[in-house]
């Protein structure tokens, strides 16, 4: 899987976690949602680890930076740069 594909899966999983987390704040006893949330977090952790092992750290002071003998956190591209981001397929956004 290339970088953009992994990034796209991680973005999707993290977004599901954000949205379900907000839902759970006001529906804390929804067992089904809670179970789903935990499943998503488990999957996202696996994808995040895969991304970081191949393309460098994602999180400030939470990810280790041991892919090489230099500090790679500062490396380009950054998320606001066009080349960082993945292109969504047309059917996914209309």
């Amino acid at each position: 899987m290339d970088r953009e594909k992994i990034l796209q899966s991680l973005t999707a999983l993290d977004f599901m976690a954000v949205d379900l987390g907000l839902y759970l704040n006001t529906h804390p006893n929804d067992k089904e949602a809670l179970e789903e949330y935990n499943k998503i977090i488990t999957s996202a952790n696996i994808v995040r680890e895969k991304y970081e092992s191949e393309y460098g750290p994602l999180c400030s002071f939470r990810s280790s930076d041991n892919n090489s003998d230099t500090w790679s956190w500062k490396n380009n591209p950054w998320p606001w740069e066009e080349s960082f981001n993945f292109q969504l397929a047309v059917k996914e956004c209309n």
Binding site: L10, T11, D14, L58, C59, S60, E82, N85, F86, L88
Partner: peptide
């Protein structure tokens, strides 16, 4: 806060 080096939703503008 922890910064995560990605956007919540991708932005890839060609023009």
């Amino acid at each position: 806060w922890i910064y995560e080096k990605k956007l919540e939703f991708p932005v890839k503008i060609k023009n």
